[in-house]
């Protein structure tokens, strides 16, 4: 009964968040707000899905952008081929990334730590090279040109910036609720056990391989959805989506927010996007400022911002009792 209650609670909170955030944004009609909402949804979803691997399962993937980019390309190509409605193409693109994650994950999750990180990186760069060299299908270096058609469905016209902002926020919230249910389920508890003590998990009869693979596929599928939103946002797909820098940025966002708190990656995404926009406005020495902030954060706090806040708060509570 407890899980059913928390499930309803999550949905309620998500619905309230949607009303509180999306409706004013819709009513305001400021294009920079719409823009930010879409980018926040895209990168928030990417960071949240990656944290299922890094924070919950303890698998540090350097190649998560492989699924982000694949989702974007799959969706863009399906829509350009014509005859697909938007929801059908979204589901197909997510299914495609799930299959891809299953194939890559089967090979990768057997390795541990640094080797896992490098192998995921290798596969990501391999896909990146394939996309660049398969010019007739993907447009190579130039990316998927010619725009992505967005035929309206159910009264939603994703060509309209306001509709796209609402739709992205909706996708993000649904995914976050789903991810939270996954993390809190017995399956999620098993993943944390794999992270903290794989020997013990194997000893009580859990298949490390199957659980890690399942987490890898789920994370990849949600990253694919983030890629679909990206493809809708820029009306195309580009090789940089699959490049290692995109994976690096996602890790950066997670570390900014914190890996131990469920919503940490979302906080990190917001900080990252705001910092990025602000710094680009103020100075051209973007890297200098970003790098210094990162250095202070990593060497000073040694954890993400939310991790730090939560730990400090817990310590105070303990002192009181």
């Amino acid at each position: 009964m407890r899980t059913a209650l928390s499930w309803r609670g999550d949905v309620l909170v998500a619905a309230l968040a949607f009303v509180a955030l999306a409706v004013p944004a819709f009513a305001l009609g400021v294009s920079s707000v719409h823009d930010f909402a879409v980018r926040f949804a895209i990168f928030g979803l990417l960071a949240m899905s990656l944290n299922l691997l890094i924070g919950t399962t303890g698998l540090v993937s350097f190649g998560h952008a492989a699924f982000f980019g694949s989702g974007a390309y799959a969706f863009g190509l399906l829509m350009q081929s014509g005859g697909w409605s938007v929801p059908a193409a979204i589901l197909a693109a997510m299914a495609f990334t799930a299959v891809l994650a299953l194939a890559i994950g089967t090979l990768c999750v057997r390795l541990s730590e640094i080797y896992f990180a490098f192998l995921t990186l290798a596969f990501q760069m391999l896909i990146h090279s394939l996309v660049i060299s398969w010019v007739s299908l993907t447009g190579g270096d130039q990316g998927l040109m010619g725009g992505v058609p967005k035929p309206p469905f159910l009264g939603i016209d994703l060509g309209d910036a306001r509709h796209l902002a609402m739709f992205s926020a909706f996708c993000l919230l649904v995914s976050v609720v789903a991810l939270r249910q996954i993390v809190r389920s017995p399956f999620g508890a098993a993943l944390r056990m794999l992270r903290d003590n794989p020997e013990r998990a194997a000893f009580v009869g859990l298949s490390i391989f199957r659980y890690r693979l399942a987490a890898f596929v789920i994370a990849g599928t949600f990253a694919g959805l983030a890629g679909v939103l990206m493809s809708l946002y820029v009306s195309g797909a580009f090789p940089t989506f699959l490049y290692w820098t995109t994976s690096g940025e996602a890790i950066f966002m997670i570390m900014l927010g914190g890996i131990t708190v469920f919503l940490g990656p979302l906080v990190g995404t917001a900080i990252f996007l705001v910092l990025n926009d602000r710094i680009t406005n103020i100075t051209e020495h973007h890297g200098l400022v970003m790098g210094s902030i990162l250095l202070v954060l990593v060497l000073g706090l040694r954890k993400g911002l939310l991790d730090f806040v939560v730990d400090a708060w817990r310590e105070r509570q303990e002192k009181r009792t």
């Binding site: 890790i251 970003m290 790098g291 210094s292 990162l294």
Partner: peptide, 8 residues
Amino acid sequence: LVCYAIIL
């Protein structure tokens, strides 16, 4: 992350 900061 530390190396990424140094690179930037």
